[in-house]
Computed example of a mutant assay.
Amino acid sequence: MPPAPKSGDALFASVDRVNAELFTLTYGAIVRQLLTDLEEVEEVNKQLDQMGYNIGTRLVDEFLAKSNVSRCVDFKETADVIAKLGFKMFLGVTATVTNWDAEGTSCSLVLEDNPLVDFVELPDTCQGLQYCNLLSGVIRGALEMVSMKAEVTWVRDMLRGDDAYEMRVKLIKQVPEEYPYKDDD
């Protein structure tokens, strides 16, 4: 019998961390440099999403190795694991899973606290910037590594005056795992 999954708090305690303020300031410097280099807010949004995607494809291995979570049976269970364990393990916060559609293929992840935005105020020149787009890319990349193609978009953002940070996660398709065929001639 496999070991029981760890709680979000146990996972957070088991992961090596950098100082939260250093992490937040470093992320802010990256976003600022992208704005300087790319000049177009939409290009910065795409770059942050791609950076997050690349991170997510790698973080999922660490998450699976340290969490003892077994294969999720469906997208609903996967979303719950992301919200309660994944966010806690890597960011020290949890998310609420809400607003499911009738098919069970689309939901919202709502963060009441987001460590990426400490010390951040968006200037008027950055309207349209999805400052935390890195997170949507991380989720998209991690889901793809567990055979789920998803679309992740920001719905609400406290940097724009909303009351929470909300991402909409939509399962596009479940990709069957392919195993190489071995011919036993």
Rank of each mutant, 00 (worst) to 15 (best):
D163P: 05
V146G: 01
E121F: 10
L109D: 03
F87T: 11
I172K: 13
W100D: 01
K173F: 06
K173I: 13
D101M: 07
S136C: 11
D118C: 01
A95H: 08
D113G: 00
S147A: 14
Q130H: 08
S106Y: 03
S136V: 11
D157R: 09
Q174R: 14
A150R: 01
G104I: 12
L116H: 11
W100M: 10
D183M: 08
G128R: 06
I172S: 09
A164G: 03
K173N: 05
Q127E: 11
M148T: 04
G92V: 15
V155I: 15
T153K: 06
G161A: 04
E103Q: 12
L91N: 07
E166Y: 14
Y179V: 13
V155C: 03
L143T: 07
F87C: 14
L109I: 12
D124L: 09
A142H: 01
L143K: 05
M167T: 13
E178G: 05
T105G: 05
A142R: 00
Q127Y: 10
V175R: 10
F90C: 09
V169A: 01
S136A: 12
P115Q: 06
L159R: 06
L122C: 02
V110N: 02
V155K: 09
L129I: 13
V117S: 00
R160H: 10
L159I: 10
F87H: 15
V146Y: 04
D162W: 11
L159H: 09
T125W: 00
T98V: 13
D118E: 07
L111S: 00
S106T: 12
L159M: 05
E112L: 09
T96M: 08
Q174N: 10
P176L: 07
M89H: 13
M158H: 02
T98N: 09
N99Y: 11
V110K: 06
V169H: 03
F87P: 12
E177L: 08
M145Y: 07
Y181H: 11
R140S: 06
E177V: 12
V138A: 03
L135Y: 11
F119R: 02
G137P: 10
L116V: 06
Y179P: 00
A102K: 14
Q174T: 05
A142F: 00
P180V: 15
L129T: 02
Q127R: 07
L111T: 03
M167P: 11
F90A: 08
L134F: 04
T125L: 06
L143A: 07
F90E: 08
C107E: 04
T153N: 11
V175E: 14
M89A: 13
M145L: 08
L122H: 05
K88R: 15
L134H: 03
N99R: 07
T96P: 02
E121H: 09
